[in-house]
């Protein structure tokens, strides 16, 4: 049985949850791979998920040049998604991104870890709150 390819049920449910939301949201797995972002997020990032596909979340987020409201670059380890992945705790931050369509947007980002069991980390959900 190909256990490596099957998405954990919690991720399947998280994707379904995200796809039903009007709030921009994405789902990444425990390796830090972007698995899905919803239609509302497509409007924020300026690119459809079908064009992106699965890829390392870090690479994908870097394309939006995240920076503070004072235009200082935000190191990866300070970004909510990285904190949720590495430290397995929730994190929240307000910052500025430039979408694929060239539009600069101020957003707030909440990332939180998904544990199927207390010792089984399966991925994260990241929610983007538009200002």
């Amino acid at each position: 049985m190909d256990t490596q390819r099957q998405k954990h049920l919690v991720l399947i449910l998280a994707r379904e949850f995200a796809s039903s939301l009007s709030t921009p949201a994405l789902v990444a797995d425990a390796r830090g791979y972007l698995l899905f972002y919803n239609e509302a997020a497509e409007a924020v990032v300026g690119r459809r998920f079908a064009e992106t596909g699965e890829m390392p979340l870090e690479d994908w987020l870097a394309t939006f040049e995240p920076r503070t409201v004072a235009s200082e670059p935000i190191p990866p380890e300070n970004r909510p998604a990285r904190i949720a992945l590495d430290e397995r705790r929730p994190s929240h931050l307000r910052y500025v991104v430039t979408s694929a369509d060239g539009v600069e947007r101020e957003i707030e980002v909440t990332a939180f870890p998904l544990f199927a069991h207390t010792d089984q980390f399966v991925g994260i959900v990241v929610i983007f709150w538009r200002s």
Binding site: M1, D2, T3, R5, Q6, K7, L9, I12, R15
Partner: peptide, 8 residues
């Protein structure tokens, strides 16, 4: 298949 519950 990997996104279908029970697929594998």
């Amino acid at each position: 298949t990997d996104w279908i519950s029970g697929g594998a």
